[in-house]
Amino acid sequence: MANPSSTLVAAGHPKSSPKSRPKNGPKPKDTRPVWMEKPKPAVQVSKAIALVVICFLALYPLLAVLATSLSSQSEIANNNGLVLFPKEPTFAAYQTIFAGGVVTDALIRSLVITTVGTALSLVVTVAMAYGLTRRDLVGGRFFLMTALFTMLFSPGIIPSFLMVKELGLLDSYAALVLPTLMSAFNLVVVRSFFMNLPQELFEAAKIDGAGDFRILVQMVLPLSRGVLAVVGLFYAVGYWNAFFNAMLYLNDDKWPLSMILRQYVLLGQPMGDSAVAEIAVPSQAIQMAVVVISLIPIVIVFPFLQRYFTKGVLTGAIKG
């Protein structure tokens, strides 16, 4: 539902057009320009403090959750609920969770939904984006407009719900994937990236007898890894974090991890599973362990894809 990247679209990014920074070369400055006076120590100190505070505010909640998940009940009680440095770290909470039961099942379900959904979304997005790169395509403008106008309105919660119901998708995993299969924003990003590839290459291939599909698979895709990585990340994050569609369409035996999180951590309902309801492990540690588990994939994937943010998305996003 929420477009994770809509703020990205508008501004031109410097790296996309080398013209915008003619003198400084391709890399941003790493040394102070000669004309810039050295800031006063007071300014530098306050800037450093500001940066440390910002990083602390961004990371503290996550670290606190991680530390709490590794703590024992007595330690959590002594520290008034949140621990920052567990004295005797214990994996008891994780052992309990991974002993089987609700959370493990939901974790597997979430991983499968995210993988399958992201793959499907990427295929459909890439196919449509590539099809729309032909300049004088029959009906090309119409197809493009059909996609773009979906950014301006949403059909509304109730009509969307009724559509899924009419299609007979209630209580099926397809209800988590199909309604959010593609975002017009990602389509535009991929399409503009394709259009900025050197077209002469493809014309040469065409003269050599390669068909449209073969050009896509053998030439375009290998050149587009960066943008595919970023758009794939957007889709994957969307599927991984989505809970509302699951809440709306699925019974609890099909819930993904995000819904488990809502139910057992936010609403504090019992997990309904004897293995998990053990008393030896503090329930708060288990709750925080579930949060950590749902954070792990994002934190793992994030650094690998980060270098593509500027390379992939921004270059793709500015040019028509």
Binding site: V124, A127, M128, R134, L137, V138, F213
Partner: peptide, 18 residues
């Protein structure tokens, strides 16, 4: 080929947005 590639995405927008 291009039209076939567009078809699934177009269908998606029609079915779930229009």
């Amino acid at each position: 080929v291009m039209l076939l590639l567009i078809a699934p995405g177009f269908l998606y927008f029609v079915v779930f947005h229009y």
